[in-house]
Design a protein around this nucleic acid. Sequence first.
DNA 1: AGAAAAATTGTCCATTTGGTCAAAAATTTA
DNA 2: TAAATTTTTGACCAAATGGACAATTTTTCT
Lengths: 217, 217
Amino acid sequence: MNAVEEKNLSRIQREKRGKIQKAALEVFSEYGLRSATLDKIATACGLTKPNILYYYSSKDQIYFEVLNGLLDEWVAPLHEISKEGKPIDELLGYMKAKLKISKQKPKESKLFANEILHGAPLMQNILATSLRQTLDEKVAVIDHWVSEGKLANVNGYHLFFSIWAMTQHYADFDVQVKAILDKNEDELFQEAEEYLTNLLLRMLSLPSNQNHSIKRS
Amino acid sequence: MNAVEEKNLSRIQREKRGKIQKAALEVFSEYGLRSATLDKIATACGLTKPNILYYYSSKDQIYFEVLNGLLDEWVAPLHEISKEGKPIDELLGYMKAKLKISKQKPKESKLFANEILHGAPLMQNILATSLRQTLDEKVAVIDHWVSEGKLANVNGYHLFFSIWAMTQHYADFDVQVKAILDKNEDELFQEAEEYLTNLLLRMLSLPSNQNHSIKRS
DNA sequence: AGAAAAATTGTCCATTTGGTCAAAAATTTA
DNA sequence: TAAATTTTTGACCAAATGGACAATTTTTCT
């Protein structure tokens, strides 16, 4: 499935490839594909440039490997949304999972964002097939919930777009966020979670439902 | 105020500088600062590379000029938010203004996003001073509205973050959006506006307020 | 241990690219 | 129109960079 089979690798190969990928993530997420250099990656992982090219045939290939690894992580939380669960809980859980990734893996988020921002030349077809199919399924679940009266009437696609946008914003544009708010990382994400929870609750709750912000019983 | 005074320029200078900036916006927004080349910009505006360097002293300077122009446009809609207006209308108007920019100036939006994504090396201090100050003022207005009972209780900073994130998403990540939805540009932004209007209405309306989706009187 | 295989590196190369510069062409000014 | 000024360009350069490769070192296998 992966472009590189990972089963028949020696200990050394596994270690070095791991080091390279980790360093490459750092460098690529900071500089982007073009302005990242093999020398920077080499320095970051303590290897020589030719040594890196012994493990990966080209800079592009390293980038491709790293990016491919990210895509799976990026899509994974979607699969956790269960038709059987309580609609609002499922969607709140999804938002929290995405927000958690933004907090814990900002570099990965930025690299992914950068790729899409520049036209996703390496992922466009995957987006249009795999991601699209998965999302279609989840939107169908949302439509189902809506039709059963378990959820306010929302456009499922745009709901996902907005969850992606709002959660990733805290990772991708952290420089801007931190230029405006002085909070430390923990405070910031705590606030964000409260804000987004409130937003989704208001957005998704049925108008005539029980009052969600103030429990009476 | 600008890094380059624009008053004492001849007709030729004005024309050529304009051409260069326009071409530079195209190229920079597609490739980013580093992987954009002077040759690409030269081709895009039909000038020679040395000719471009006759008008701008370096590639970095062109980038700086272009970027600086964008910042003003980016912040401008914020100033339109009036303390005197009806809170929800003001904020809906702001969202619509930002969404309109995403639709009509996607390249500008992407260039801006790219800069922040990579740490905003050229704008960090402006963000932390000018933008921050403006935003502080507008958040104060929101707090005021909230305290007067004209608006649901929301965190003003995160409200702006989410409006930025959600509206810019349609420009910055258009590749992803279009990989998932087949709609044409007009349909897409129409849907987005409806979705975001509904979202903000639900988010900002007071719980016990009049029913906003169905007018009774 | 010794041979074979794998891993590592120093050196080198070709291309790309930002930028220079002097000469030429075009425009403006007197 | 002729001089002065501005604009344009072809040729060129130095630095950066992705990558090749043969030689060397290290590890693995018998």
